[in-house]
Simulated assay, not measured.
Amino acid sequence: MSDLNKEKSLALANEIKADGSFNRQVNRFTTAFGEGSDELPVEAGRYRLLWSAVCPWAHRSVIVRRILGLEDVISLGTASPMRPNLPHVDWEFSLDENGVDPVLGIRYMSEIYKNTDPAYSGRPTVPVMVDVKEQKVVNNDYFKLTNYFETAWAPLHKDIAPDLYPEKLRHDIDALNDVIFNDVNNGVYKCGFARSQEAYEEAYDTLFARLDELEGRLSQQRFLFGDYITDSDVRLYATLVRFDAAYYSAFKANRNRIIDFPNLWGYLRDLYQTPGFGDTTDFHAIKVHYHLSNHIATDDQKSKNILPKGPDLSGLHSKHNREVLSNKEEKFLNRKG
């Protein structure tokens, strides 16, 4: 392992438990959006959403932003899929002209975190909402951010925006989101970041047991809650779409590919072909990050910086026939319907 990778691995030491299992850091900026005096005001043009196309947590916020028509309301800054050559874990705006975000004027994600809290010592994560007026981070709570977009930001949704978080289903959606997060979204990272055989195998078994369960659930209904896409589908999609291209090999989550699950594979194709999903998915960026720029990988694990040519993902465009499970062509429940 290079000296640089050693330093980065040490920086992540507080996210590895004594048994070798991965324990993701807690979000630092969690103030909610809303109308309360202690909440963040909802205001068009005030905030900038920073993301990288490789990150599943960030991707789902971008999907919801597009589906709900918030693209002209919340601006978007995109970091490179490649980690910068620094002694700490960071994101870099090298895709932009002169290598700086054109709105915030920052080169590295850590700059806006440090500007907000000079004592901040965690990883600078995405997605993160930045108050452009104050030039400070206001929310990096990836677990709740899409829910804020779906509720607090409703006054700024496009006309006839879909309802991804129906009030009558919120308790059930929240419960399923917890399961999906622990066993699937974070489950693949628990496999990939494990530092003991026991921790890896436990995470592996939990992940595939949950995928088996979801395969069964989706054999009976088109989406996780029936006929229409909800917030839970967005969250599951972000992991499934990365699975065969990245997690299967890079994170040793290799019992099955998603293409090997008939119902999950059809479900993934259905979502991928839905506006907001496939058109925000960047497979090149995903592969570059997970195979060449994974900040905890050793030089040997990165196979001497060779980018895998596969897998063949053209099947995502093939007919899925999932509509027969709902007898509906429309995939969204309209908020005003």
Results as ranks from 00 to 15, higher is better:
112 I>Y: 03
73 V>T: 10
74 I>M: 04
58 A>V: 13
104 L>T: 02
86 L>Y: 10
76 L>E: 11
87 P>A: 15
97 E>K: 07
55 C>Q: 10
95 L>F: 04
101 D>C: 10
86 L>D: 08
86 L>E: 13
54 V>Y: 09
79 A>P: 06
83 R>D: 14
50 L>V: 07
112 I>W: 05
55 C>G: 02
97 E>D: 12
95 L>G: 12
107 R>P: 00
114 K>M: 08
60 R>C: 09
101 D>I: 07
105 G>W: 08
77 G>Y: 02
99 G>C: 13
73 V>R: 04
103 V>S: 14
51 W>Q: 14
78 T>C: 11
71 E>G: 00
74 I>H: 10
57 W>Q: 11
63 I>A: 08
56 P>C: 06
102 P>K: 06
65 R>T: 11
113 Y>C: 06
53 A>E: 00
79 A>M: 10
104 L>S: 13
60 R>E: 08
93 F>K: 02
109 M>V: 05
82 M>D: 08
71 E>D: 12
53 A>D: 14
113 Y>F: 15
68 L>S: 12
80 S>G: 09
62 V>L: 07
114 K>I: 07
109 M>Y: 06
64 V>Q: 01
48 R>Y: 00
80 S>E: 11
83 R>S: 14
94 S>V: 13
52 S>G: 15
72 D>M: 00
106 I>G: 00
114 K>C: 02
47 Y>C: 02
83 R>F: 06
64 V>R: 00
92 E>H: 09
67 I>G: 00
54 V>W: 03
57 W>K: 05
63 I>P: 07
73 V>S: 08
71 E>N: 10
79 A>I: 03
90 D>G: 09
67 I>M: 01
104 L>M: 14
102 P>D: 13
107 R>Y: 04
71 E>I: 04
83 R>P: 02
70 L>G: 06
90 D>R: 07
93 F>D: 04
51 W>V: 09
60 R>A: 12
66 R>D: 06
57 W>S: 11
107 R>G: 01
93 F>N: 11
68 L>C: 08
68 L>I: 12
64 V>T: 15
67 I>D: 00
69 G>M: 05
47 Y>W: 02
89 V>K: 10
99 G>H: 08
80 S>H: 13
50 L>A: 11
106 I>N: 01
114 K>Q: 12
82 M>V: 10
106 I>P: 01
55 C>L: 06
79 A>T: 10
50 L>S: 13
65 R>C: 10
65 R>A: 05
104 L>C: 09
48 R>D: 08
49 L>H: 14
98 N>R: 14
52 S>D: 06
112 I>T: 06
99 G>I: 12
91 W>K: 01
87 P>W: 11
72 D>T: 12
62 V>Q: 09
99 G>V: 08
102 P>S: 12
50 L>N: 12
71 E>L: 02
100 V>F: 13
93 F>V: 02
64 V>E: 01
100 V>Q: 11
98 N>C: 11
71 E>A: 00
60 R>D: 02
98 N>K: 15
68 L>T: 06
54 V>L: 13
105 G>E: 08
74 I>D: 01
90 D>A: 15
103 V>D: 14
102 P>T: 09
92 E>T: 09
58 A>H: 03
65 R>D: 05
60 R>M: 11
89 V>N: 15
52 S>H: 04
96 D>S: 08
88 H>D: 11
105 G>D: 09
87 P>Q: 12
87 P>L: 14
106 I>F: 04
84 P>T: 13
93 F>M: 13
59 H>Y: 05
113 Y>K: 05
96 D>A: 15
100 V>P: 00
52 S>N: 06
